[in-house]
Amino acid sequence: MSDVAPARATLFLEAPEPEVAGLARSVLRDRSVRIGVTVVGVVVLLAVAAPLVAALVGHGPTEQFQSEALDSSGVPIGPSSSFWLGADGNGRDVLVRVLYGARVSLLVGIPATTIAMVIGTLVGLLAGFFGGWVDQVLSQVTDVVLSFPFVVTALSLVALNRTEDGSSRVSPVLLVIGIVAAFSWTYFARLTRGLTAELRSRPFVEASETIGSGSWRIIRRDVLPNIAPAVIVYWAVQLPTNIVAEATLSFLGIGVQAPTPSWGNMIADAQRTSLYQVQPWFLIGPAVGLVATVVGFNAISNGVRNVLDPHHGTR
């Protein structure tokens, strides 16, 4: 009997270990993940290669070529051998701008979502693990943040960011990252709180407490590894939403500022100047970039969820 008891104890005390390598293999076997990874991979590659393309065609992202790319009445040319996606209303190369715009989308989307994930997970862990007044306070804070209207709050923050001379206190890109993160951590917090609260009452956590493990150790060793896969999937779910949020802010003129290209402000330019009517690529270029990135990340997150979610019908 004496040699059996420790084994039983181990069974209760150790948290179930996710099989990382096996998990990665099954995730990559999923078709939609493979499609998503390919699409996102291409977008990332093109974003990284933006300066190379700019050098190849000889057009910088803000450089204007009125004499080559606009006719005498200011109408931009369509796709040609030197301007592969044509030009915009200022005689700038649409392709080069779309590629630089991808950089903005990823440079804003990835850090913003990561920051939101870190903050949201921390808040959710604390609320779910400790419960009681900690949970009440943190859940209330989350609800209050959720109740703020995104665009209106963003507009106010942008106004506050301006100094007297019209310049910005912090770089507009950092501000956009901050705004997008501030509005998306709440989703991570709610998810994590629910998962943690559920784990909190599981035997292995209670057992850890019984043998005297501290709260932080339990969170770090038992809870976090178990909720991490779900949080990472949610990161991929939230990322395209945040890329669209950046595009929305730039479209409304409060995100990345002219003449720096971003998909949002390019779409806004094409639309308000009506130039998409004569040069459709001015609109299609950034729109395809945006749609491809969003679809790519959505495909990845769908596939990962298929693999991880035991309740999902297909697996």
Partner: peptide, 22 residues
């Protein structure tokens, strides 16, 4: 003055808009 529209719609409607260009 000019009020703007939401980009959420714009991103997906872009191709449709281009199709109605003429």
């Amino acid at each position: 003055g000019r009020r703007s529209r939401l980009a959420l719609i714009a991103a997906l409607a872009a191709i449709t808009l281009a199709a109605t260009a003429c």
